[in-house]
Nucleic acid binder design. Structure first.
Length: 424
RNA sequence: GGAGAAAUGGCAGAGCGGUCGAAUGCGGCGGUCUUGAAAACCGUUGUCCGCCUAUCGGUGGACCGGGGGUUCGAAUCCCUCUUUCUCCGCCA
């Protein structure tokens, strides 16, 4: 959510910058400014009358004490119309504020200056790449065949228990999953992140804080009876830890990491390219989150990108880092880097991580602020997060890229975690 | 699930219709003292919104778990929701 101050002061700049995201903000901003103005006018009026009321109430109190009942009563009579007036003005403010908020939350975050215009994945910019693309024999299998061949992930069983997109990991498949989670967590803790185990259901306030609600309601599973939502990513609980919090500048940056299962309804997104592990309703992910000083948030972003890069690189997966264009970036993001790994049997790139700086956009929804040491003024923090990493596609890439005639080899860094070096 | 009690500033804890944004203690910040530190003493100490102001700041309004109500006036009374604690029941 952009701040009302920014909208008041930098209207033209916002309109310009949002064009990069192919968003026409002009009409919305015009409405916002009009609502803002009328809100302030009414508020001023109401508050000055309220001030009169407060003064008269005190007078009545004083008169009663002195025993001047008649004078107190005459003052009391005078307050009645004021009371009406204040009430009717305040009643006008509420719906205006609601409308104002409704309009403001429709504005996407401003893209960073380095973000290129564009409409989709084709306009993303390749920043770096690494690793070597393996050449597999013609007999190489896609991962959905490999998991059957080695009996390590069972989709049919998941369908029986829950439904499509809820796989059951079995034997060495389950162990590989757990090994990856441990590996990712250990790496993050070593890099200075604090491990968290948050709830995987959140309330509505949390959903609003990170931007899933109210618009992306259909993406999350709703536990109707209790009004909770299953988290689509650990970003939601871990970032919302700092909702309504004022940090001191020497606590920044806050660096947290969490493993959680993630749940996504993925309504309407099924089709080609979603076979096997490519898209699931429930999957495992390790997420890193930083709360940063606004002056340093792009250093933090770079730091996170390097961290994620070290993970894919140590797993020996061919990868590339893409800077998303305006049209491919999320509503809430200022700058996003996507990590893609090469899936050797599908012969395509799979997105395994998305690392973003939200600047103060989430912080404003969260009311997460900080104070510079010794200063009175509060400022909004910057929030960042990134997958480090999302498991299913990493598993898919490992299975495909590391397949041999004798079985699937396990990347060397994982062997201490799995306890085996080949799946047969 | 049943029966009671409670929710106040960073923390602890008073207040239970008017002078309360809120005593007191601790903590934090600034100062005096000291070679330095501690102790002691003095001062200061929240958030949001509006208006005025180039800035420092001034001024008005709101905030005592959330929401609603009674009243000229609510931290204080009433309703409701949430959370916590105690006892009983159930239970990984």
């Amino acid at each position: 959510m952009l701040t009302i101050n920014l909208i008041r002061e930098k209207k033209e700049l916002i309109i310009e910058r949002l064009k990069i995201k192919n968003f026409d903000a002009e009409e919305i901003i015009t409405r916002i400014l009009a609502l803002d103005l009328s809100r302030r006018e009414i508020q001023s009026k109401a508050e000055s009358l309220q001030s009169d009321m407060n003064r008269m109430s005190k007078e009545i109190g004083a008169l009663m004490k002195e025993g001047k009942k008649a004078e107190a009563d005459s003052t009391r009579e005078k307050t009645s119309w004021l009371k009406e007036e204040v009430r009717s003005l305040n009643d006008k403010i509420l719906p205006i504020e609601e409308d104002l908020k409704k309009e403001i939350i429709r504005l996407p975050n401003l893209p960073h200056i380095s973000v290129a215009p564009g409409y989709g994945a084709d306009n993303n910019v390749k920043v770096r790449e690494g690793g070597t693309i393996p050449i597999l024999p013609d007999s190489a299998l896609p991962h959905w065949d490999l998991i059957k061949k080695y009996d390590i992930i069972d989709f049919d069983l998941g369908i029986k228990l829950t439904g499509a997109g809820f796989p059951v990991y079995k034997g060495k498949g389950a162990k590989l999953e757990r090994a990856l989670i441990s590996f990712f967590l250990d790496k993050a803790v070593f890099a200075g992140y604090t491990e968290m185990m948050p709830p995987i259901m959140v309330n509505e306030d949390s959903g609003f804080g990170t931007g899933q609600l109210p618009d992306k309601e259909g993406q999350m599973y709703n536990v109707g009876l209790d009004g909770f939502y299953l988290i689509p990513t650990a970003e939601v609980p871990v970032t919302n830890i700092y909702r309504d919090v004022i940090l001191s500048s020497d606590q920044l940056p806050v660096k947290n990491v969490a493993y959680t299962p993630c749940f996504r309804r993925e309504a309407g997104s099924w089709g080609a390219h979603v076979r096997g592990l490519n898209r699931l309703h429930q999957f495992d992910k390790v997420e890193i989150v930083q709360i940063a000083h606004p002056d340093n948030s792009y250093i933090a972003l770079e730091d996170m990108v390097r961290h994620v890069e070290s993970l894919v690189s140590e797993l020996g997966l061919p990868y590339r880092i893409m800077r998303l264009c305006g049209g491919d970036m999320s509503f809430t993001s200022s700058l996003t880097y996507d990590f893609e790994v090469w899936s050797a049997a599908q012969k395509r790139w799979l997105e395994v991580s998305s690392v973003s700086n939200f600047e103060s956009f989430q912080a404003n929804r969260l009311k997460c602020r900080f104070k510079e040491k010794g200063e009175k003024q509060t400022r909004l923090v910057h929030t960042l997060n990134g997958s480090a990493l999302a498991l299913p596609r990493i598993v898919a890439a490992i299975l495909e890229n590391y397949q041999t005639e004798n079985g699937i080899k396990i990347p060397a860094v994982l062997v201490p975690y799995t306890g085996f070096d080949i799946i047969t």
